[in-house]
């Protein structure tokens, strides 16, 4: 077993030294551009300009590493983002900070080190605030949030069926009650959602698991690099990505975390660069209905 792990480690190291080591900034910038192009919400105001600007940098390396290009791109994206300020998803904010960080780092002589630092702190802060909100929410800690989500959010239906025995009939009935209240013009409309005992247990487990893993990421990424918790910071982030995004398919956030995870790796954890890059390439796989496949396998 030990020799298999050793061989895998050396193969990854070889792969890293051969293809990644000398192109870290270039690869980070390219992955960031792809993320912005494919996953970021743009306002109609500047969507066309941004969509035209990004392929230019993907095609020409000199443009992709130009300070002025990133200054222009970040300014345009900031202007285009303003109308979406109160309606955009959080990963759109994080993408924008990331674009600013790239633009800023290119003005330093040690560009990659500044970018790497910003990436680690931004990931840490993002998870710190995410943990804060979960701790401040009594309905989250009681499991109510996940219970409600399992019963009314179609993205979680297969997971709820697989783990908590929420039948297709219950899903359809709950969805109908939920939609009726949201679309009704009657302000006193109410309805009872049907759940199983297992659903409440799973919801509570998910709540505590989420606080634990997000809190762990926040601490590990914000503590100084020399601490033990920080040294192994990639472990909780990779676990989070692999356990969260196949269920809650927020591919934009997954792609961005993979890019930022890649960028924050130092020489001491260079192997993780290969792992983050692999996760980035495999993002489309997150859209596969894993729970449905598993259910079919169980039935079979």
């Amino acid at each position: 077993m030990k020799s298999v792990i050793n061989r895998l480690y050396h193969s990854l190291e070889e792969l890293h030294n051969k293809y990644l080591r000398d192109r870290l900034l270039e690869l980070t910038v390219m992955m960031s551009l792809i993320t912005v192009l494919l996953f970021m919400q743009h306002s109609r105001l500047l969507m066309g300009v941004i969509i035209l600007l990004i392929p230019v940098a993907i095609l020409f390396k000199e443009v992709a590493l130009s300070r002025l290009y990133w200054l222009l791109l970040s300014l345009l994206m900031a202007i285009g983002f303003l109308p979406l300020y109160f309606t955009a998803d959080n990963h759109t904010f994080l993408t924008l900070y990331w674009i600013f960080a790239i633009a800023l780092s290119l003005w330093f002589t040690s560009s990659y080190s500044v970018l790497s630092y910003n990436s680690r702190i931004l990931i840490g802060l993002c998870f710190l605030f995410a943990t804060f909100w979960k701790l401040m929410s009594p309905e989250f800690l009681a499991g109510d949030f996940f219970l409600f989500t399992f019963l009314t959010d179609s993205r979680f239906f297969d997971f709820a069926e697989l783990t908590a025995g929420i039948s297709p009939e219950m899903k359809s009935e709950n969805l109908s009650i939920f939609e009726n209240i949201i679309e009704s013009t009657n302000r006193t409309e109410s309805g009872l959602l049907e759940a199983t005992g297992a659903a409440l247990l799973i919801s509570k487990f998910m709540a505590y698991w989420t606080v634990f893993i997000e809190g762990w990421i926040a601490i590990a990424f914000l503590l100084p690099k020399k601490t033990v918790v920080s040294k192994y910071r990639d472990i909780p982030l990779i676990i989070f990505m692999l356990t969260t995004y196949p269920i809650a398919t927020v591919r934009g956030f997954a792609a961005l975390l993979a890019v930022m995870g890649f960028a924050q790796c130092g020489e001491e954890n260079k192997i993780m660069r290969v792992v983050y890059l692999s996760v980035f390439v495999l993002i489309p796989v997150f859209s596969l209905p894993f729970e449905r496949i598993l259910m079919n396998l169980i039935v079979w």
């Binding site: 109160f86 955009a88 904010f93 995410a130 929410s137 949030f145 209240i181 989420t210 809650a248």
Partner: peptide
Amino acid sequence: DLTPWKGGGFGMFAMIDRMENRPVH
């Protein structure tokens, strides 16, 4: 009364009160 899901505070997946669940009459 901003929904915790929006506004750049990373309050997503913490409360039921999301923008999509707010009807306007």
